[in-house]
Computed example of a mutant assay.
Amino acid sequence: MNDVDLNLLPALDALLTEGSVTGAARRLGLSASAMSRTLARLRSMTGDPLLVRAGVGLVPTPRALAMREQVREVARDARALLGRETTEIDPAALERTFVVRANEGFVALFAAPLVATVIRAAPRVRLRFVPRLVKDALGLRDGRVDLEIGVLGKSGPEVRTHAIFRDRFVGVARVGHPLLDTQVTAASFAQCLHVVASRKAVVHGPVDDALAELGLRRTIVAVVAGFPDALRIARDSDVVAQVPRSLVRADRPSAAALVEGLEVFELPMALPEIVISAMWHPRLDVDPAHRWLRETVTAVFRASPVV
């Protein structure tokens, strides 16, 4: 289509609708002379005069009459296709499946209220949760994942992020553990046996860095894939676990089963906050449906009693 100038399409639509060079020029915000030159180009391209003089006005040729409705439809479709998409969306009419990649902590804490919110606002939307086994941008880049929730890892530089939740680690030990007989200090904490939750079996972490700054070192006897497993081990042994505070907050009803037989204590060293972020690929940045999903996730986090 190198010989076709699609910029002429709106002009042709205006000329055939107005039946006047002056009217078409006014409609498109052009001068009458510019529109006359455009009409000349259209005549040359179509091989038809399109509009011919009849007294003081112009009348369409048979070719122009035949193409008028089609030109109007094509021009409307072109504007809809290439114009800016509306920023408004009706969630009730939205029919789409969103893939959300998140760890079990997010699913345990927020999946239920998020699903309930989506059902009320957008009953035709389906959420498919997949585990966050790795911290990379591949799923976002290739479109397998719409939204990722978690701690930032080695992601692509183009990935959009928005911090939606801040958490911190706390210690957990069985009821009656000797560590809890007196005030927990960094030294007494380090002397305990520890279980670490890590999907990639990474043993060294922020707790070890904080202890090292105090000249201390702990003994790790078990590495598990998730925090619920760490809690089970701590409940049935003298091993101590570290988990996010949100997972074991007493004011969260579903935490009761997790903390049964356990005591939660503040860690005796300063650790960096856990920042939970929403991540998505920039190709979805202005997509109204995806923006609605991001706003819904953020709203659910802010309304949650564990935040």
Rank of each mutant, 00 (worst) to 15 (best):
L30I: 01
T97H: 02
L214H: 10
D238M: 13
L179R: 01
S31T: 14
R27A: 15
G261K: 10
D142Q: 12
F169S: 15
R232S: 12
F265N: 09
L58A: 03
A289N: 06
L216A: 11
S188D: 02
S304R: 08
R27E: 14
T185V: 02
R302K: 11
H290D: 06
Q183V: 08
W280Q: 07
A11Y: 03
R53T: 12
L133I: 14
A75P: 09
I149T: 03
P60C: 05
S198W: 04
N7S: 14
E148N: 05
L152K: 14
S33A: 13
L138R: 14
S31G: 14
L8F: 01
G23R: 12
L211A: 14
R252A: 04
H177P: 03
T219W: 01
A222D: 14
A173C: 10
A108C: 00
L39T: 06
R101P: 00
R291I: 12
T86N: 13
D285I: 01
T298M: 11
D181N: 06
L133T: 15
I274P: 02
G57L: 02
L50I: 10
G23F: 09
P123V: 08
F129S: 09
V134A: 10
D181Y: 05
V172E: 08
D142T: 09
A112I: 03
E260G: 02
V125I: 12
G143R: 05
A303I: 07
A34H: 13
T17L: 05
L42C: 05
T219N: 03
A137Q: 08
L258Q: 08
S155Y: 10
L58G: 01
H162I: 01
V151M: 11
D5L: 10
A270Q: 13
L109I: 04
G156L: 09
V239N: 10
V100Y: 02
C192L: 11
A210Y: 10
R43N: 12
M67N: 09
P123M: 08
V275N: 05
H290K: 05
A278N: 04
E85H: 12
A116Y: 00
R218I: 10
L193H: 05
L39K: 11
L9F: 05
S33M: 09
E88H: 03
R174K: 14
N2Y: 00
S20Y: 03
S304K: 07
A255T: 04
Q183P: 00
A75M: 10
R174D: 07
Q183Y: 00
A54R: 12
Q183E: 12
A289L: 09
A289Q: 06
K200S: 15
L39M: 11
L193G: 00
A121N: 11
D238I: 07
V21Q: 02
R302A: 15
A78C: 08
H177D: 05
F110T: 03
R27Q: 15
R101F: 00
A250P: 02
P288Q: 05
A230R: 03
R84V: 07
R174Q: 11
Q242K: 11
S36G: 15
L127S: 03
A303Y: 06
V223L: 07
F129V: 07
E266K: 01
E263M: 12
L15I: 00
L179T: 04
A116C: 01
E88A: 04
L6T: 06
R101S: 12
